[in-house]
Write a protein that binds this DNA or RNA. Structure first.
Lengths: 303, 303
DNA sequence: ATGTCCAAAATGTCTAGGACAAATTTGGGA
DNA sequence: TCCCAAATTTGTCCTAGACATTTTGGACAT
């Protein structure tokens, strides 16, 4: 790869670190130290961008920026995850089988992965496939990315192929009637696998899902909910989503949404959140199924 | 909907206008004029956010910000598109049929739309389905959004359902061998339909497609291309993608990518671009097919 | 040991206004 | 009518300061 230079907007794109953050780090910690072009604008050499990517990854594992940015060159590579990944209880799933699936991705054998997954789907049925294969596999992929054994593009490949499987499986289902659940995510939250998993389960359960993809502005979510006469708006937040924003976002949306429409928020991102008034948190897939039963027992009867 | 207020980050999320732009507009044109909270930070009332959304849409139609921001309240709603939509030659397609399909979306009849599209796919075959139905339909959806007859969430519904159809159709195809084409888009470019259309056509043509989804950082694209031993990296740019950035992005990626790997850029976004050295532009689907033949005639023989 | 509470430090995001390059429009002349 | 240069428009970058919020580290009590 050639020696390319990046301006500050390109670094924001590549690393996900905002321009404000890049500038304030330079001021406070003395890193990164980009060169300047003829107009006095920052030009980041490729190796500094690489280091920023590494720092970002370590921060997602729970390291503090102050330590990372002060660390001498070469000291970062050996850091272990700080936030203990608590081996998320692979209830009845064979760890080895998951590892084998991940290996296929790691070897970039897309076709092999698709075959293996399709087999599992056929063998276990959609419900168990989602709960015991896709969900834990997705967690493992996230962990693998955090500890550096997966590249971003490998995660993308996993996501893309798994999306296809789930969508295909969902398309084969008979769609239910109620409740009418609008499925989407807020802007800045592009992860779609959680939505697809829950869509599969809810559709199996007899709900009518309206999938709108990811990244809907809040005002649009409100309009869509009204236009589709949804009973429920369900949002998905991944672990990667900035935790601090979730509460405010839910409160704001709850304010804008008509009283009659329930607001559910699920995904790994909400496990350590407390629910704002009028919002139901669904940290896991099982809770989502329970929420449908609850809805039928209460609001459903009145409608 | 309740009277909610938005801080500057929320407005950026809702409208897609950067914080810099929001502040400089306020300074220069006197709109928007948000209130201030106890900390002196901007608080945008919901109606100003609505107006900003409208302004953004009109700008995408070719209007200039200066005029729009100086316009009196109520004068904006009646503005017509400035950039003439040149009725994009619906070669042999029945306009009425497309309109009927759009109506289904407009009526939020997802199931009906899926049925109708599946029928068309079965009747015409994938190649003609993509070229004569999906492609022009997507253009019409874009136009409809621009002139205000489609809401954002309706475009999302269209995209989501059409994605499923295409993915399903692609899954049924036998995958080819060469060239090995890595399909993705740059960060900030989330539109995926173009990628799926071209994937369908290229796979039909016997190419081996590696779909990595959208929004890959440039550095990751390079890694992925090497890891997958791709012959070609193909990027998709939608009309909505900021034109000014495309050239620079392609040049930078071309610099980083090994010589042996071709770089193709397609989509409505590149129709009025000039190609940087070493980059092949594919403004339409037909050109993509031609590019495969070209590749086979030249590089393919040498490999 | 374990839990609780507070001050200090760390961190991200906001603010202000200035500057300038690139894109677009305008005006004039061939 | 066409084309080029000047003027304007517009987005993005810059510096530097401020402050709310979160996290840490230590003191103290259980």
């Amino acid at each position: 790869m050639n020696t390319a230079e990046f301006n500050i907007a390109a670094v924001e794109r590549e690393t996900g670190l905002s321009k404000d953050v890049l500038r304030v780090w330079e001021r406070r910690y003395g890193f990164p130290v980009p060169g300047r072009d003829a107009n006095g604008e920052r030009q980041y050499p490729a190796d500094q961008v690489e280091r920023l990517r590494l720092i970002k990854r370590l921060m997602d594992q729970g390291h503090r920026p102050g330590k990372l940015l002060a660390a001498p060159p070469g000291a970062l590579e050996s850091l272990a995850p700080r936030r203990a990944p608590p081996t998320p209880t692979p209830t009845g799933v064979d760890e080895g089988e998951l590892t084998a699936l991940l290996d296929l991705i790691k070897r970039h054998d897309g076709a092999g992965y698709q075959r293996a997954m399709q087999q599992r789907l056929a063998r276990h049925g959609l419900l168990r496939f989602v709960q015991d294969t896709v969900a834990p596999l997705t967690v493992r992929v996230g962990d693998a990315w955090e500890d550096g054994s997966f590249e971003v593009f490998e995660e993308h490949l996993y996501t893309e192929l798994t999306k296809r499987l789930l969508r295909q499986a969902i398309a084969a289902l008979q769609t239910g009637n109620s409740p009418r659940i609008l499925l989407t995510s807020v802007p800045e939250e592009p992860h779609v696998l959680g939505l697809l998993m829950v869509e599969a389960l809810l559709t199996l359960e007899g709900a009518h899902c309206i999938p709108l993809g990811t990244q809907m502005p809040l005002l649009e979510i409100v309009r869509a909910a009204e236009a589709h006469q949804a009973d429920v708006v369900a949002l998905s937040f991944s672990v990667a989503f900035p935790q601090r924003q979730i509460g405010g976002l839910l409160e704001q949306l709850r304010l804008m949404l008509p009283q009659g429409i329930d607001l559910w928020a699920g995904g790994r991102g909400v496990v350590r959140q407390s629910a704002p008034a009028g919002v139901t948190l669904l940290p896991g897939l099982a809770e989502a199924l329970a929420a449908v039963s609850d809805w039928r027992a209460t609001s459903g009867a009145g409608a």
